[in-house]
């Protein structure tokens, strides 16, 4: 996706430059993560008023319904996530990332949610956030449902300290409850539910 980050313009679905309005750099809403101790918050400095996530879109510019869907719905991401910053890599920047990290090839467009609390609270942790590999989705309707689930999940758990646990329980559907949910969703899909 060609975009001029320096000028703050992004192309619309037809590739034309669109004039854009800068989002609020900081939100006024308190992000008092229950899992974070007072010490960790004070050591993190301005945690209470900082964005929880930095979003990145790595997109080499594939032409298809799913890539076009995410490009057309970019405002929804910032709008529904308390205006946390979204950084859209240009096609050249995305190409460079994929050349450097070939395991991402075939998975882009990748929407990456960098959890800023992860690095601030536990420097030793190997959890840095999570990413949605939209390139693995084949149909537009499935992609839209997945993006909605992703944004809903982030909105519901953005104040939580241990979001990784929620990812495993709710998105990866680990455990017995998750297995039942996997079967329920699968059977609904089979009967067209």
């Amino acid at each position: 996706m060609a975009e001029d980050n320096k000028t703050g313009k992004a192309p619309d679905s037809e590739g034309r430059a669109v004039r854009l309005i800068k989002p609020k750099p900081k939100t006024t809403e308190s992000h008092d993560a229950p899992g974070l101790s007072t010490e960790s918050q004070s050591s993190a400095g301005d945690v209470a008023h900082s964005p929880r996530f930095h979003f990145f879109l790595i997109d080499c510019g594939w032409d298809g319904p799913v890539p076009n869907l995410i490009r057309n719905n970019l405002p929804m991401i910032t709008h529904l996530q308390n205006n946390d910053p979204l950084f859209v890599l240009t096609r050249e920047q995305s190409d460079q990332m994929l050349r450097k990290y070939p395991h991402l090839i075939g998975k882009d467009p990748v929407l990456l949610a960098r959890d800023l609390y992860a690095s601030r609270t536990d420097a030793e942790s190997e959890y840095h956030g999570f990413h949605l590999n939209l390139g693995l989705i084949k149909t537009e309707s499935e992609a839209l449902a997945t993006i909605r689930t992703f944004l809903n999940f982030l909105a519901c758990h953005r104040k939580g300290g241990n979001i990784e646990k929620h990812i495993q329980e709710q998105l990866h559907r680990d455990g017995i409850k998750g297995a039942i949910e996997v079967l329920r969703v699968g059977s609904e899909a089979m009967v067209g539910g």
Binding site: N5, K22, H103, L112
Partner: peptide
């Protein structure tokens, strides 16, 4: 929905650096 773990820490570090260096600016609506 892949968690960004040890395998992706270099990807994350590169992206953080691009933001810090001003190579990436926030998308604006």
């Amino acid at each position: 929905y892949n968690v960004l773990d040890a395998e992706d820490k270099h990807v994350v570090a590169d992206l953080d650096m691009m933001v810090a260096n001003g190579q990436l600016a926030p998308y604006v609506i």
